[in-house]
Each structure stands twice: as C-alpha cells, then as structure tokens.
Nucleic acid binder design. Structure first.
Length: 581
DNA sequence: GCCGTTTTCGGCCCGACTGTTTTCAGTCG
C-alpha cells in the first residue's frame, strides 16, 4: 500500500505540532500537547524517513510514538488525512495554525490573534498590525505588535536559510575571535548542532567561559555585524547579524562550564535520555550541574563535560554521536566506537586537477604540482590527480586512451620531484543513463584508481537507478562509488537506491562507497554511513576538490563519518599505503 | 498521549527572558 502523496519528516512533524498547539490552547490537555510535541520532535530528528518506518511497520520504534499516534499516522500515510486530527482542530480558527511559524508567536497568541481579530492568513495579520489592531488586543502591546510585524517580514524574506557547515564555521569563528579579544573571556565553544557537526545549521550557538558575564554580553550585542538584538539578559543573549544569521550566546563561569557545554550541545533526545537515566538515581540535570534529590538538593558542579558524564557513570560521549541513536546504551556498555579522526586520513582519492582531459563538465583548476605540494603539507601519502571522464559524445575510446596516457606523462613529470607522495592517475567515471561506463575496460585499466559517479538523468526511479549503479559496481576496474545519493544540500534530495542491494554488492566485490566531503554534498550521509558499516561496507572520505582550498573540506567528510559511527578501520584512505581493501 | 529493573498507573524538565502585568503568562531552547 502506498501513500497518495509523499510526506517528508518536516511535513509530518508540522502536522503533529498543529495538533499539539490545538491541545495546548484547549488547556485541559497539557500532557497530550506535550506528547504531540515530543512526537513531532522525534520525527523531525528521526534517523530515517517516518514514511519508510511506517512501510516497514516499525514507526513505534521512534521514541514518543505510541500506539495512538502511530495509528493516526497510519491513516495519514494511507489516506492523506486523519479524522481524529480534523476533530481536534475543529472549532479552531484556521489562521491560527499559520501563525505558529512566526518567531515569538506560540499557540496561545496565535489562537488569540486569529480568533479575536478574525484573521485567516499571514497577510491578514500583517494588515492588522499595520492598522494598529494587534496592539489594542488584551495581553499585546506596541512592542509585541512590532515584533510580530518584524517576524513576518523575516519569514517572507528569510528563505529556507539553513547554513552550510562551512558558512556556520566561518561566522562562529569570526564572532569567537571578536569575543576572545576580551581579557575576561577564558574560552569560547560552539554548542548545539554546530558542535555536533550536523550537515546544515539553523542558528549558531556559542558558549563563553567568563567571570564577567555582563561585559561579554555587552560586547556581543554591540558587535559591528549586529542588525538586531533579539534578547539580552544577565547570562544569555541572542542577536541577528546583517546577513540574517541568528546567534545565541550563553555565558557561564568556570565552575559549571562543563554542565553548560553538555546541556546546550544536546541533542534534545540525547539529553532527555540522559535525564531519564539520572532520574532513576534521583538526580536532575541542568546547565548548572547535577542536583541530588529534589529541588533543594545538593548541586554538584562540573568544570568539564568529562566530569559531568563521569558523574553519571558514563564515558565522555563525542558530540557527533549525541542523537540518542544508541550512543547512551553503547556508553553504558563501554562500547562506544573509537571514531575516525582527521589526522587518520592518509590520502585523498577524489580531486579534480587542471589537466585538460576534455571533460564535458565541471573541470578542476588545481595544477598537479600544487596538488603534490599541498598533499605533502597535509601529511598525505597518496593523492588523486583526478578528472571527470572525457565527454563521451566528442571522443572515441582510442582518443580517450591518448588523453589518459598524456595525463600519465604529466603526472610522471611531477612525481619525479615529489617522492614523499604517490600521485594517482584518477578518473571519476560517468555512470551513463544507458547502463554503461564512459570509459572502456581497456582504458579503465590504465588508471591507478577509477570511481564511478552518476551525473546525468538523476530523476531515474529507484529500481532503474539501482541497476545502473550496480552495473558500475560490478565492473572489476571500478574501485568505488562517488557521492552515492547525488544529493545537493539545500538544492536537491538526490536519487533513491536499494541500499541493501548496493551494500551487498559493495561487500562482495570489495568496492568502497564515498563520503564526499564537499560542503554541499556530504554524501553518503551519516545515517547511511552507519547502515553501510553495519553491512560491512568500506568507505572512503574524499574532498572532491576543484580548487586548492577545497582540499580542506576533508574535515567535513570526517565529521559525517564520525556521525555515522565510523572507525579508522572502516575508512580505506586511512591506510598509509594505497590499499583499497 | 507516552512510558516503565523501584511503576501497566501515575508520573511527565526547567530556567531565562520579555512584555505585559503589578506578580505573571507566554515563548523558547
């Protein structure tokens, strides 16, 4: 049975949040509201598509989804609507649910606005603000009205607005550097999704360790990049930068800084799970420390996160793992993975150099000699001198052979002067839509390494695309698969594959799947990385650099590997010699 | 509505900040 339309996790969680809002306004259903909120959170951060879990009949494996909500979602996926939800929402003004997305507007105020002013759309609300109607409502005032108006404008101009890790890192670094100029600032750390190295970032959260909180907050709110001060208190503040990015700052003194780091690094599900563990020992967790026995109990403070976790009888858990997907159980059993590190990487197998291989698209711009030099600086033992395959329409295989041999000569010439690093003649070979490779077997044999990649007809169906990719993975001269899902963050989802089949063939034929470290790709993604490792598949983390600075994207790929629980042994390019398996 | 080696009933995180109040409700993370 298939659903009449596709439901993404954000869409499903939105539906649940609307029900939570309705219950909240009803007032007598506080815990139902909380339950729906929890379910929405759970689905939003689920390690798989809720609809897939439903198809496999394991929706209830998500925490917060019990029998009742599972049943409603079953109806949703089957028919596209839920009669119970319609009943719950009955009597609520329709406009209210549209106002929930406005920053600062929660269920109660959304209801009040829609009901009292009879508003049906965001547009209506904006008009009401401009007509000064909102300020006259009981419980609202001039300031609230202005804030709502501001929130609406932000929503309209804002766009999707999740930052790439590269962008978030750069902004966080810049702000941190400004704050570090203060002698009172002892250290600055990232928090939240940025610290957990999630692939895209909403708001940037920072922690500052200091004994002069007010001074730090004053400086923070008066940085030259600040457009708005969203709030400003004694220990925390939020600003919006001129580019629209929101930054939340929390300050804490040394003695309880570890608790702050732990608490606000999250994730929420990780912390909820920890709290449940703690409750069994009558402990309660907060950003100030751990309290024993009730509200007035003894508070233990922690300078470091290590001490915080140790107090709970747990080893320190790397932030990348803190998603409540088994890391707490693993920590309890002392079976946390020994995660791969950037310094474990001994080579980069996917790079685009400036040799003209007469490719059809997206040629690299890195001179071979620069690649060799930079590779040595990075401590690599081998590096791909790569290209896309020559355009199929403009070359015969004989012509391609000539090009590859000519490139080999160019490589050999540079190799003479750089004996510390092995230069690899590499091609990212197009896996064509007609289920053939762009290079013949004879030509593939000339290369040190060949990685297959899908670059055309991305809208193929799952079965067809699986066959197409398997064709490449069944070729003895192909070593692995580049950017396996073809996704581009904030741009396109990528194609679907039958992963069980792909994993099987990779294991059987000894092919690696790539974790493409290019900031827009980060593909294979963390969830599939973990699945692949469980299946016994080896991975390669590659930069896919087209310009010299892109080589440094390697760290983003390593983050993805770590979020997928990868150890050094799972990654082929951690071997000091090129040993694909 | 969810959840469980102290519970299948009876609990359910909690503190900061803001705007509107004149002691607190709503929102957020």
């Amino acid at each position: 049975m298939t659903s009449p339309k596709g439901f993404s996790n954000p869409q499903v969680s939105q539906i649940l949040r609307e029900i939570a809002a309705a219950y909240e306004v009803k007032g007598d259903s506080f815990f139902e509201s909380r339950a729906y909120e929890a379910a929405a959170d759970s689905i939003e951060h689920a390690p798989a598509l809720a609809k897939d879990l439903w198809e496999q009949d394991i929706l209830q494996s998500l925490s917060g989804i019990g029998g009742s909500i599972a049943q409603h979602l079953d109806e949703l996926f089957r028919t596209g609507k839920v009669s119970h939800f319609e009943k719950v929402k009955k009597g609520f003004p329709e406009g209210m649910f549209k106002f929930l997305d406005i920053p600062g507007v929660g269920p109660k105020n959304a209801y009040k606005l829609a009901k009292e002013l009879n508003l049906k759309s965001i547009k209506d609300l904006r008009k009401a603000c401009n007509a000064n109607l909102v300020a006259r409502l009981e419980g609202f005032g001039e300031v609230s009205q202005k804030k709502i108006l501001h929130g609406i404008e932000q929503m309209i101009e804002g766009g999707s607005g999740r930052l790439f890790l590269t962008e978030a890192d750069a902004i966080a670094q810049k702000i941190a550097n400004e704050l570090k100029k203060l002698s009172e600032v002892r250290r600055v750390d990232t928090l939240g999704s940025l610290r957990r190295r999630v692939t895209t970032i909403g708001d940037i959260e920072l922690a500052v360790q200091t004994d002069a909180p007010q001074k730090v907050i004053d400086v923070f709110t008066s940085l030259s990049e600040v457009k708005d001060i969203l709030n400003k208190g004694a220990i925390k503040s939020s600003i919006r930068l001129k580019d629209g990015t929101q930054i939340d700052l929390r300050v804490q003194e040394v003695k309880s800084y570890g608790a702050l780091l732990q608490y606000f690094t999250g994730s929420k599900p990780h912390n909820i799970h920890l709290r449940e563990l703690a409750m069994q020992r009558n402990l309660s967790l907060s950003e100030y420390g751990i309290r024993e026995g009730g509200r007035d109990g003894q508070l233990t403070e922690f300078v470091t996160e290590e001490e915080f976790y140790r107090f709970l009888n747990l080893p320190w858990i790397p932030p990348e793992l803190r998603e409540d997907t088994g890391e707490i159980e693993a920590a309890l059993a002392n079976k946390l993975p020994n995660l791969v590190k950037l310094k474990d990487i001994k080579g980069d197998l996917h790079i685009h150099c400036d040799f003209d291989l007469e490719e059809s698209h997206d040629a690299g711009r890195i001179p071979i000699e620069e690649l060799a030099r930079r590779g040595i600086e990075l401590g690599y033992k081998y590096i791909a001198v790569g290209n896309h395959s020559p355009s199929v329409s403009k070359h015969t295989q004989a012509q391609m052979r000539k090009l590859i041999l000519k490139k080999q000569e160019a490589i050999d010439k540079v190799q003479k002067d750089y004996s510390q690093i092995k230069l690899l003649n590499m091609v990212e070979v197009d896996i064509l839509a007609n289920n053939t490779l762009a290079l013949s077997d004879e030509n593939l044999k000339l290369l040190d390494i060949a990685i297959g990649g899908v670059h055309s007809s991305l809208d193929m169906g799952r079965e067809e695309m699986t066959e197409r990719v398997l064709m490449a993975l069944n070729n003895p001269h192909i070593h692995g698969l580049a950017h396996p899902t073809g996704r581009l963050l904030n741009e396109r989802e990528g194609y679907e594959l039958d992963w069980a089949k792909i994993f099987n063939v990779c294991v059987e034929n000894k092919k690696f799947l790539e974790i493409n470290a290019f900031y827009k790709r980060l593909d294979l993604h963390d969830i599939l990385v973990r699945e692949a490792i469980k299946a016994g598949v080896k991975l390669a983390v590659n930069s896919d650099a087209h310009d010299l600075p892109h080589l440094d994207f390697m760290k983003y790929g390593v983050s993805v590997a770590r979020r997928g629980w990868a150890e050094k042994k799972d990654i082929v390019n951690t071997h000091p010699t090129l040993l694909l398996f």
